Amino acid sequence: MLEAETRTELSRIAKAANHDPAALMAVVDVESGGRVFARVEGRAEPLIRFEGHYFYRLLARQKRNQAVVNGLAHHKAGRVRNPRSQRGRWKLLKRACGLDRDAALQSVSWGVGQVMGAHWRWLDYASIDALVFRARSGLEGQVELMLRFIEKAGLADELVQQNWRAFARGYNGPAYARHGYDRKLENAYSKYRAMCGPALRKDPSKRHQPLLLRFGDRGALVAGLQGQLNRHGFALFVDGDFGSLTRAALKAFQARNGLAADGIAGPKTFIVLERPVLALDGAALPAA
């Protein structure tokens, strides 16, 4: 059972996103087991699970061999065991980050929706760091990840209609029935609907909007954009403030790469920003 404070917060988030609060609570409850934070080194952190088979796939051969020897990677799912405690899992992640930080962060399922970091591009985040930042920012950030996945996976209508069998297949995979995932969702929904009252019907015209950064925005996502522009040859001060210099650099980058030079960073711009930077001789330069 989700705590009262968590239910209140989820109800607010659900209504803002035009979702049925009881349906959102049901998914969060089943996915998280009713626990939305873990206390790790004095900080409230999202629940994580490290997937060693993802780490195996994302690493170059030399690092992959080192990871296998150190028990951090395996070509088969489930062979790298997660500690029972979240504190132990964060220590495991820290070890993996010591070998390859980006690959390690992508090899984790994050937060109440257990969304894999490897989906960051598909979910329209500027970088894996942007996804992780949102996951660690609080319950709202965790739910944002989950709702983006639901929208991208085409499961929003199933959630609205409480078609738990179809939702379970899409969200949990073809083995959902073996674990009774759909029945767990249905039971949880009935429980939370009794608390929340009549279902909120979602307006199908309101869909998830992709990440857009523009003049006047501030924060870690803007700092990540500035860092990416610097990697492509610009000399911006990485301060997280989308001012006139950042806009001018972005427009120049967009024009140089055949994009609409509107000074707004959206999915197409982020995709190009992630490409390797080429030296004059065509050799790929390491990322900054």
Rank of each mutant, 00 (worst) to 15 (best):
A44P: 09
K202G: 11
S85E: 13
N172A: 11
P174Q: 05
T6G: 07
G266P: 00
Q209L: 12
S85V: 10
V272L: 12
A104R: 01
I13Y: 02
R178A: 11
F133K: 04
R201F: 11
S190E: 14
V69H: 01
L185S: 09
T8H: 14
G98A: 06
D100A: 11
L92I: 00
D102G: 10
F234W: 14
A177K: 13
D239A: 08
Y54N: 08
V28H: 09
S137T: 06
Y56F: 14
D239H: 10
G243C: 05
D203N: 15
H53R: 09
R136T: 03
A248P: 08
F50L: 00
G216V: 05
E9Q: 12
G42K: 02
V222H: 00
G180E: 05
G71H: 01
R12G: 05
W110F: 08
S109A: 11
N163M: 08
D20N: 15
P204V: 09
A199Q: 12
R136L: 04
G78A: 10
M1K: 14
R64M: 06
G138V: 02
L105N: 04
R64Q: 13
L212G: 00
K202P: 11
V28G: 09
G117D: 03
G180P: 06
G216F: 06
L24W: 09
R79P: 03
P83E: 09
E5G: 12
Y189K: 07
G266V: 01
Q162R: 15
L72K: 00
L236C: 11
R35V: 14
A14R: 04
L147Y: 01
N65K: 05
N172D: 06
V238D: 09
D182W: 05
Q209F: 07
S205L: 09
L147A: 03
R136P: 01
V36N: 06
G117I: 01
G113I: 03
A77T: 15
R275L: 14
M195G: 11
A175W: 02
Y171T: 05
G98N: 04
N82M: 13
I48M: 04
N18E: 14
L59G: 04
G258K: 11
L2K: 10
F133A: 11
F55Y: 13
F253T: 06
G197H: 12
L24N: 07
V36Q: 07
E9K: 08
L24H: 09
L229V: 10
A288P: 12
G113E: 02
L145T: 03
V160G: 11
K268V: 07
S85H: 13
Q62G: 08
F215H: 14
V40Q: 04
Q114E: 03
L10D: 04
N230I: 07
F242A: 03
S107T: 03
L236T: 10
R121E: 14
A4G: 11
W120R: 04
A17Q: 06
A265W: 01
A283R: 15
K63I: 01
P21I: 06
F167N: 04
S85N: 12
R256W: 14
R121W: 10
G52E: 04
